[in-house]
Amino acid sequence: MTVPAPSPRAGDAAPVLSVRGLDVVFDRRVAAVSDVSFDLRRGEKLAVVGESGSGKSTLALAVLGLIDPPGRVAGGAIMLNGRDIGRLDDRALRSIRSREISLIFQDAMGALDPVKSIGAQLVDTLRRHRPGVGRGEARRRAIQLLREVEVPAPEQRIDDYPHQYSGGMLQRVMIAIALANDPDVVIADEPTTALDVTTQAQVLALLDRIVAERGVSVVLITHNLGIVSRFCDTVAVMYAGRIVEHGRVDAVFAAPLHPYTEALLASVPRADWPRDRPLPAIPGFPPDLAALPPGCSFEPRCPLGHGLDICRKVVPEARRFGTGAGSASAECHFAGERAARRAAAEVPA
């Protein structure tokens, strides 16, 4: 797959999804997501990356309004098509899910009800949002959807059950279900993690094609940076519940502003890495969300700021650097310095 060209519509129109200052807490104290803001334009594919437990999946559920007690959205706004869906009641939220925003889950095997047929779950999704559509019509539409996600012999396979499908085929079904009611935004939470590499590539190529055809915006949650560079336009790096860096994929990957992003990129295994040298890893562990450091959450593991007073005591604010396509924002006290150095290096002598 080539790096996708920016969609013609991307960038100019108002964002489809705009999250502002989102806080999600569990049990009052544990902030799983804190002060997260980002915009998603039509057709944009945003990657959310980070280690396990960094709040990626919680963010996904929060945007769908699916945080269950004891968790709750403690603050911020989630604007979808200009409406704050954080303020909607359950009934209104239900009609938005699948029609305006939908979810592709990481483990396709567990994401479908094992005792209901593929067709039943697809038809239910379709009819729920179009009460006027009859069973036969919905079934025809379901077969068409399965064909669109390249499930072979959809007329027969529609009556099969999840255990009769392979993992890759199930993930195709999940994509069909997620796109059944033409949503504007699809949140894909590690959609290919459970698949082998070949299937992964096929499913991603399929997702790529379908979202391009329909102009759907995608939030792709992953910890696979290879997928990010192949599939996404923009990337948000999460650490301890915060977005610590956010910008265009090419810019961020070429010159990360946040030391965490840099460390994350450095720890990607490469084919040309010498066999006898250990892979670089980020020292230490992600912090306990219930007992975050008072300053920068990354300070204890940071190669730049470890032990520095400012990093230990002051939470860095998100700042924007650069303009146009190369602009990025980062939450790091040293980001300005790094950005300036990068700009200086780019100026021809």
């Binding site: 699916l66 239900r94 899910r97 699948s98 939908s102 979810l103 889950f105 567990g110 239910d124 729920r128």
Partner: peptide, 15 residues
Amino acid sequence: REPFITVARSRGLSR
């Protein structure tokens, strides 16, 4: 707590 319950709700089903 199974994922398919969350997914069912993401399809528009009430809890």
